[in-house]
Design a protein around this nucleic acid. Structure first.
Length: 945
RNA sequence: GGGCGAAUAGCUCAGUUGGGAGAGCGUCUGCCUUACAAGCAGAGGGUCGGGGGUUCGAACCCCUCUUCGCCCA
């Protein structure tokens, strides 16, 4: 083996072998355990969030696989409607100068499929680099033929159950992409804008309480005034009570609109008067419905002003009675141009009261980057109220459990306040809505046109056209757990692997995905989609900032695995930017953070880092220093294996059941191994990957490497040691290492496989891969508290000697002798058990036991319980240094004694605290006092010289 | 404005019946000791955000304030 751990030399080969041998597929044996991967976007590439999430899922699935379960980790990707369509449109424009309209719908979709075949596999290749043991043979895509069947089935059944309807509703409209988008795709940005105060003249000579002919409304979006239906005030607002029921003559438009009272209005905000524009604002839309106000849509799909408003009643039906005229000068004017003109016209008419600066949130489309417009359009909706009830009950009853539990509250809060879900998108790429229209606009929903004709008994010559829209990508994602298993067919896979065992996801998509999966899955399968939802935090940079391209703080997981040169990293972060002006700042920042670029840490170190960061918090601050520490941990494991192999290969390790002698250290490390296995089992059950990683790290480094390997040396290097003892030590070395590898495998698949291949035969283990070995489970009969206590005693003696060596500057190469005074029977017994080990490990030439109270030469003193560990000073230690060291010790003891003394002289404590707590404190105090006495006597003695 | 979350060593974070404040990294000191300098040994470092309360006893329970983050309006 190499002297240093070199991750890139081992990773790829192992993954290829695992995949080729089909180790990732379900074994067909044992209880089922399944995880459906949250399907990554087919256009995407692996980011830190994926890498984090996949590390967790892979650890779970490898753990369960090793426990003998019939495991399925379902692979797949999501067709990502907008993202994919935009990507291919841009490519088409760049390469051929054509738009999708030049090609037409069918040809364009053909192009997308071509793109997908060629380039859609990026993220799945990257997942392989992470070591993800997904069953690729079952990989699914949400636009697969089979998946489309499931989508259609769900749509048709929901429609027939009256849970899907079509209607004119206000939606988030992207004026550039010409489609409705979901709330998830809207990013609300803080901006400084203005609040324009407009005078609206009162009709019929009405006057305000102050005697004015007008009232003042404030707005952040002046252009919407063209669509005003009313002015609202708070019903309790005394200033305007007399005006409720009166009218306004809307400037520029000339429409007469009422003044209404509604609790929505905040009397304290602005003037307390609010213009109501139901067709262009979500709040106003609700107000409009409450007061049956007509809706005036004034914008077209590009966000330009119409020549005539589209007028609807509050239920969405067309209204042919009201005046739909709009001022001519606004026709075809873009919304932002219209805003300017409106302001100047109000000003010219003396109707602009004032302009205030105002901080507001502006909605932007995350794909197009343009301001999103609330727009009245015909869309398809899912009525969620009835679907939500069983979905809430499933969590209340514990059929689905959230981990950590607090997220259940977030889920309930959202489910109780659910809006109908707009599922149609004006795109070409996606699942086309299975609805057909005749010339009169009647709608027929069925799986095919032919089915529509028979279902609705339509004549053969009636012309039907299919709805042009496609479904929201999340609609198909909501079917993911059962759609991937063949539903609506009742397949064996569906029967075996559904419901899935656990969903691993970020809290940010509980609403958009988790809740909808629960609703749809319950409705169509009668089962929950998963029994547990493990919710993890979001990966942020070292300062807690969200990682984003525009901030330039994005880390590519593959760069952490493979390493990257500084110049390449700078180019990668500053290339192809939406806002090129930020490039300079990002370059500076990158050069500051990574002056040497990023070195290669390997997949295992990256995975272990993610897992050790997976606690219950919401934010995961990714810290390169921690990853370096875990890379070092890999190296430690690697070198421990080298040591073990050097001492066991081609030697008698007792694997044929030969007689062995197990030394105290052997029994101790085996005992500690069982306890570690117990802890790890508990942490897996609790999804506490951070504690799990810690327990493993602690055992491997601080117990196995720091102590056991060192304790094995005196045995292995003892030429006179009996064969049984050598065999016992070698067997323990190898067995414990082999068990560590299996324990660690779910977290660090590559390094453990690489080492296991060499170590397993020595430990008498058979098998082609560690992946399919049994996961270690604790054997309680091997837990040995006595051995543990004895080793703790040995560590105590070692620590006392090392402390004196360190503080007194006695080099580690220097052999010394020690004296023990005040040793009791137990100390003496332990001394005899460990004498050889102590002599070797502490570099001692002699350990001499003194009778209690016997005189001793001048010596530096350490204490272990009542036993004094003396290192004679002659020629080694200078008086002042020892006095200073003792003073420091005494000072520490003094503080602790004062604290305990205070506690024990508190009558309340002694009388009310549990007896064992009081007894424990008394014992501690006595120990400290005794230690204090001894050390101060020693101090006096040395001072006398 | 409403809701949720966070605040513990210089940094990143554990601390699950309320009973001796921990880890890793960084810092200081000494070591190329034949598994590992990506290492070994030793040491230093914290009024657990502020204030109040409950309790014999609070990092932990309650109230309040401050700061930061996220979601919603």
């Amino acid at each position: 083996m190499d002297k240093t751990y070199q991750p890139h030399e081992i990773e790829r080969a192992w993954y290829e072998k695992w995949e080729q041998k089909n180790y990732f597929a379900p074994s067909g044996q044992g209880d089922a355990y399944s995880i459906m991967i949250p399907p990554p976007n087919v256009t995407g590439s692996l980011h830190m969030g994926h890498a984090f999430q996949d590390s967790i899922m892979d650890s779970l699935i490898r753990h369960q696989r090793m426990l003998g379960k019939n495991t399925l980790w379902q692979a797949g990707t999501d067709h990502a409607g907008i993202a994919t369509q935009m990507l291919v449109e841009r490519k088409l424009a760049a390469e051929e100068g054509k738009s999708r309209h030049d090609l037409g719908r069918d040809a364009f979709i053909e192009r997308i499929w071509e793109w997908k075949e060629e380039s859609g596999g990026t993220i799945t290749r990257q997942l392989r680099r992470m070591g993800a043991s997904l069953d690729w043979s079952r990989e699914r895509f949400t636009m697969d033929e089979g998946f489309y069947k499931a989508v259609q089935e769900v749509f048709v059944r929901l429609y027939d159950d009256k849970l899907i309807y079509r209607g004119k509703r206000l939606v988030n409209w992207d004026c550039k992409l010409h489609t409705a988008i979901s709330d998830l795709e809207v990013e609300n940005k803080d901006q400084s804008g203005h609040l324009w105060h407009f005078r609206y003249p009162l009709a019929n000579g009405a006057l305000t309480a102050e005697g004015k002919h007008y009232i003042v409304v404030a707005t952040t979006r002046p252009e919407t005034m063209l669509g005003d239906s009313a002015v609202a005030v708070n019903p309790k607002d005394k200033r305007y009570q007399n005006l409720v029921g009166q009218y306004i003559d809307l400037p520029l438009v000339g429409r007469r609109i009422p003044i209404i009272a509604d609790d929505y209005v905040d009397a304290e905000f602005g003037t307390g008067c609010v213009k109501i524009t139901p067709a262009h604002d979500f709040n106003d839309y609700e107000v409009g419905k409450r007061h049956q106000l007509p809706m005036f849509n004034i914008l077209d799909h590009n966000g330009a002003v119409l020549s005539r408003a589209e007028v609807f009643n509050s239920d969405g039906t067309a209204n042919g009675d009201l005046d739909d005229r709009l001022p001519e000068q606004y026709h075809s004017l873009d919304r932002f141009e219209a805003r300017k003109l409106i302001i100047s016209e109000f000003e010219a008419a003396g109707l602009l009261e004032k302009i205030d600066d105002h901080a507001l949130k502006v909605p932007y489309g995350d794909r197009s980057g343009t301001v999103i417009e609330p727009l009245l359009t015909d869309q398809w909706f899912v009525a969620v109220a009835d679907l939500a009830k069983p979905a809430i009950a499933a969590v209340e009853q514990g059929d689905i459990q959230f981990v950590p539990k607090q997220y259940e509250n977030m889920y309930f809060a959202w489910m109780r306040d659910l809006q109908d879900w707009c599922i149609s998108r004006q795109l070409w790429w996606g699942h086309r809505i299975p609805a057909w229209y005749d010339d009169c606009g009647n709608v027929y929903v069925a799986r095919t046109e032919a089915e529509a004709r028979s279902k609705y008994q339509l004549s053969h010559d009636l012309a039907l056209t299919q709805d042009n829209d496609v479904l929201d990508t999340w609609f198909s994602s909501a079917l993911w757990t059962f759609g991937t298993l063949g539903w609506p067919e009742q397949t064996p896979e569906l029967k075996t692997f559904h419901p899935s065992s656990v969903l691993v996801t970020g809290f940010d998509i509980i609403f958009f995905w988790v809740a909808r999966m629960i609703m749809f899955t319950l409705k169509f399968t009668g089962e929950v989609p998963f029994k547990t939802v493990y919710v993890h935090g979001l990966v942020r940079d070292q300062d807690g900032q969200k990682m984003s391209k525009s901030k330039g703080n994005v880390l590519d997981p593959l760069d952490l695995i493979d390493g990257i040169e500084l110049e390449t990293l700078v180019a990668k972060r500053t290339g192809n930017m939406m806002q090129p002006q930020l490039a300079k700042k990002i370059e500076e920042q990158t050069r500051r953070h990574f002056p040497e670029g990023i070195s290669a840490y390997g997949t295992d170190a990256l995975r272990f880092t993610f897992l050790s960061l997976a606690s219950t918090g919401r934010d995961i601050k990714f810290d390169m220093n921690r990853m370096e520490g875990y890379r070092n941990f890999c190296n430690k494991l690697w070198n421990a294996a080298r040591y073990v192999l050097m001492n066991t290969e081609n030697q008698d390790c007792g694997i044929q059941g030969e007689a062995v002698e197990l030394t105290l250290p052997d029994r101790w490390i085996l005992s500690r191994l069982q306890e570690t296995e117990q802890q790890i089992a508990k942490h897996f059950a609790d999804y506490r990957f951070d504690l799990l990683a810690n327990a493993l790290y602690e055992f491997v480094w601080n117990e196995y490497c720091d102590w056991y390997l060192e304790l094995s040396k005196p045995v292995l290097w003892d030429e006179n040691a009996p064969a049984e003892r050598l065999r016992g030590t070698r067997r323990t070395l190898v067995q414990v290492l082999e068990t560590i590898l299996r324990l660690a495998h779910p977290l660090m698949p590559y390094i453990t496989e690489e080492i296991w291949q060499r170590v397993a035969p020595l430990a008498g283990q058979q098998g082609d891969t560690i992946m399919l070995q049994a996961y270690p489970l604790a054997d309680e009969s091997l837990i040995d508290p006595a051995a543990n206590a004895d080793i703790e005693w040995l560590k105590g003696v070692m620590l006392a000697i090392r402390n004196i060596r360190g503080e007194m500057n006695i080099g580690p190469g220097k052999t010394i002798r020690i004296l023990l005074r005040n040793a009791d029977q137990e100390d003496l017994r332990r001394l005899e058990t460990t004498r050889t080990l102590l002599l070797k490990l502490a570099k001692l030439e002699e350990i001499q036991v003194l009778a209690t109270g016997a005189d001793a030469p001048m010596a530096a003193t350490g204490l272990l319980g009542n036993m004094e560990i003396l290192v004679p000073m002659a020629g080694l230690i200078d008086k002042e240094a020892e006095l200073a060291r003792l003073a420091k010790e005494l000072d520490k003891l003094n503080k602790e004694i004062a604290r305990l003394d205070g506690k024990l002289s508190n009558a309340g404590f002694v009388s009310k605290a549990p007896a064992e707590v009081v007894a424990k404190e008394r014992e501690k105090l006595a120990e400290m006092q005794s230690a204090y006495t001894r050390l101060s006597e020693q101090q006096a003695e040395i001072a006398r010289i």
